[in-house]
Design a protein around this nucleic acid. Sequence first.
DNA 1: TCCGTGCGATGGTGGACATC
DNA 2: GATGTCCACCATCGCACGGA
Length: 282
Amino acid sequence: MALLLRFNQLRNSIWSSCPARLLMPHAGLSSGKLLDPKSYERRLFSTRVQETASLDRTCISRIQPLEFQQTSEHEQSVPLLIFDIKTTGFFQKRNRITEFAVHDLWAGKNNTFETLLNPEMDVPKYVAAVTNINNDLVCRPDVPRFSDVLPLLLAFVRSCQTPGKPIIWVAHNVKRFDGPFLAQKFDRCSAQMPEDWLFVDTLCLATKLPKLSASNDKRHLHDLESLCKRYGISVEGPPHRAMQEVMKLCQVFQKMSFDLKLTYEGLIDEAIKANYFSKFLN
DNA sequence: TCCGTGCGATGGTGGACATC
DNA sequence: GATGTCCACCATCGCACGGA
């Protein structure tokens, strides 16, 4: 019996590490190279303000990449897209996305995609109290729906992507919240998430951080606010809005990758493939 | 409000070692 | 060799957490 249990544990261990090995060649990453926080913003981008013809100028993101020149050092790098969504609630099937923000970590401060989204349903008051996104802001005909924005989002991601290399999306609690939500909305638009999209959950990374010796709190505080406190990060702007959370997460992710001595290999090890979220669709 | 996940506490199991 | 004790390891359970 004990032998059987140990076999099961060994098997689970092997399976859990298997995706990493499978993904490494796909990612085209060199193993063992540390993710140096100082190198995140070295890639050179030129950007322009993107005017949207059919969508309201106040809603859709202002900045789209036009063209970029990568330094030779990062010619082989894989884009790291930090993102966050705001929704009308917890339930993927019942609720809708009200705001989407994404920032390319390699690309410096300017390469962002940010938009409010018309959820086509009422925003509950208790959610509006948290997110500061209410019916007046998003339940308007001039605010685009997710299906309207999806082609722009895909174009933005393509512009960040190195041909033949995957995209790594990074978000807090992406495994349980953002990822399944996004998959659900793709499905609703009869679209499929590209298979070369990989997702890294900073909540999972946070659980691997060493505990602070000064902290007497026995609770497992891995929420974004606690991580910001831990690293002394403060970001200006309206609280609990998507882009503000993205900017916080950018800094937290860089600090965490340093603390965890995260390598590309380790990052890919943490990554979830897009088709993982398909189980949430049924 | 949901629900998967991680952690701490607890108890069971088996191996190593000491003693008779 | 038989028995008892200690320790490491593991499974299970319950609770807290995290997202809007």
